[in-house]
Design a protein around this nucleic acid. Structure first.
Lengths: 194, 194
DNA sequence: TCTAATTTTCAGGAATTCCTGAAAGTTCGA
DNA sequence: TCGAACTTTCAGGAATTCCTGAAAATTAGA
């Protein structure tokens, strides 16, 4: 490995983190390196800097491409492919969220929906089905919310995150003041939570 | 494996999902089984229903306990330990978020902070440091937001998620009406986003 | 303290995932 | 169409993770 110190500790860290997630250590390192790089890198650059085999780098880039986490571009007069990450780090978050939804959430939701339309044979299965319904509801709620806020401008999204739960205060105020908002914020009939 | 059909497909699914995350297939299955169970289960129940070794179940329960994802309890006149998951599924989300923060986010933040106080030796390192600063800011923002909203009552949290980005409308309204909120919602000086 | 019930530990085999080198494939200019 | 530059594929060895059975440890009642 042939990297300046700050870069190296970042790359090593994300290698380890990567292997706690689904991706392999080397894929994590490749992404970390690209994330920090000033300029797009080609596969040989990466091979040289990280010190593993050319074919491994090729596989890693293929995987990152399938996640849409790297962009491919060409330099004029150079046949090699250059890879980079989005400049806007929030774009990376968006893409990750979308891909994880596609790969993990959607299959889970469809498994749950399938289970929910079956007729439970026993009392235990009835209870299991209720638990699955709870989980289905939770996942749908979080997914919808996440899709919804991902459409916001980065600046707006940041604002929203910054106020966090204080936004709740605004709700209360709104209710108090009976401000009309075109029905979009209409309060649902209150159901007693568990 | 000795399970009714709905339960079985759920358990198998979460076994597979588990192995995409950091946890092993069997740990995923154990958790899925406990999540659906009507009553707390002991290690032998689990062994019998899932059909792998007693020692594997013991290791799995130990891991789940270290994640605080299962609760341990005793039945009067029975020496065995019974395991269950929280009844409130949102409680599971909260615990997961806390544990992941402790295990993954905090170490990452401290690596980033360490890198940010070093003096970059080269121009490339200078740029790398800037990227790390961006990432640090993003993680801090998301983490703070998440800690913040996790303190809300479940019912309030659900409301908040349900309105999603529409909450933004309320902000705009607030600005228009110049409603005083005790300074807590004071708008930051606008910086031009990228 | 002893014993039986129960849980935990852990060495090592099984299964899986990762990584490499060699070879095949692709692309583009001459 | 040829060949050099570059990329991808893939069989199989390396490394890692998973899982088991046997044995040790713990616990609570007698």
């Amino acid at each position: 490995m042939n990297l300046p110190p700050l870069t190296q500790s970042f790359v090593l860290h994300f290698g380890e983190m990567g292997s706690r997630w689904g991706i392999s250590r080397t894929v994590g390192q490749i992404y970390a390196l690209l994330f920090l790089a000033e300029e797009p890198l080609n596969a040989d650059d990466i091979t040289e800097k990280l010190g593993f085999s050319r074919s491994n780098v090729s596989m890693g880039l293929k995987e990152l491409t399938s996640w849409r986490l790297v962009k491919l571009q060409h330099k004029p007069g150079d046949r090699r492919e250059y890879f980079s990450t989005p400049d806007d780090i929030w774009e990376i978050v968006r893409i990750l969220a979308e891909e994880r939804r596609k790969r993990e959430i959607d299959p889970t939701l469809s498994m749950l929906r399938q289970a929910l339309v079956e007729t439970p044979a026993t009392l235990g299965e009835r209870h299991a089905q209720e638990r699955m319904a709870e989980m289905h509801g939770l996942i749908e709620l979080i997914t919808r919310w996440s899709e919804d806020i991902q459409k916001l401008e980065t600046e707006t999204l940041i604002q929203l995150l910054e106020v966090g739960s204080k936004v709740q205060k605004v709700f209360e105020m709104k209710d108090r003041l009976k401000v009309v908002t075109g029905g979009k914020l209409r309060r649902r009939p209150r159901t007693e939570g568990q």
